[in-house]
Design a binder for these strands. Structure first.
Length: 233
DNA sequence: ACGAGGATGCTCT
DNA sequence: GAGCATCCTCGTG
């Protein structure tokens, strides 16, 4: 597989663009965590969601509403900072959720990572997720993937454009979808939110088993909308 | 298979 | 004090 291959971090310019475009193009990319003295952790991104400042579900929403009056304050202030920076927050008092800040400085937007597929360092991920039986349960949710990859508050507001934590183009196709030479990206409404539920700003790799289980109760199901294909690199 | 409910802490009103 | 960008366990079919 790609073990040991040199990986080049995606540059800050990648994130300084439309949040929807970044969220879509991150599908199929690698999320890499290099810990000195340990095997490199790498996982293929299979599910993302876009959050924009003009979006009631976005943490930057309240700051955006009053931004003509004062500078952004509180938890969501980093969303308005430079792109390519990590926005990590504690959800339901227990789970760290990873975002990368997008668009130009002054705009409060980010992409949330909801699911990844392990590529390198799976044994370490298993150790980080004791008690998990099915392989896909290691990383098929936003709180699960951060725990498996050892991501927590230490990374909040740190750049994601250089080690130890960064993104990279894959050097081989998905282990789960070996026959496919393309990444098929589908869209749906976002999961687990109560506002902005009509926006189809969730992106995921079609038929990848590591995509998070569809939420039964809240926002609408993962009914796939538009499908777009892209060549693998 | 599926649904209900609990854990747990921070942010904002 | 309410409301979460969640996950896991333990019921019942």
């Amino acid at each position: 597989m790609s073990d040991g291959a040199a990986l080049t971090p995606l540059p800050v310019e990648f994130f300084a663009r439309s949040t929807l475009l970044v969220a879509e193009q991150l599908i199929g990319m690698l999320l890499v965590h290099e810990i000195p003295g340990q095997p490199r952790l790498a996982a293929r991104i299979v599910e993302t969601e876009a959050y924009r400042e003009d979006d009631p579900a976005c943490h930057g929403w309240s700051n955006w509403k009053r931004r003509h009056q004062q500078a952004p304050t509180g938890r969501s202030a980093p969303l308005f900072g430079p792109p390519g920076i990590a926005y990590v927050y504690l959800n339901y008092g227990m789970y760290w959720l990873l975002n990368v800040v997008t668009e130009a400085e002054g705009t409060g937007a980010a992409v949330l990572f909801r699911a990844v597929e392990p590529v390198e360092g799976i044994d370490v991920m298993r150790q980080n997720r004791p008690g998990v039986r099915r392989e896909r349960d290691l990383t098929n949710g936003p709180g699960k993937l951060t725990r498996a990859l050892g991501i927590d508050a230490r990374f909040h507001e740190r750049p994601l454009t250089a080690p130890p934590l960064y993104f990279a183009r894959p050097v081989s196709p998905s282990p789960s979808i070996q026959a496919e030479a393309e990444t098929k990206v589908a869209t749906s409404t976002r999961i687990g939110i109560t506002k902005g539920t009509e926006l189809a700003w969730r992106f995921f790799e079609e038929s990848n088993p590591y995509v998070s289980p569809a939420d039964p109760t809240k926002s609408q199901q993962g009914r796939s909308g538009k499908l777009r294909s892209r060549r693998a690199r």
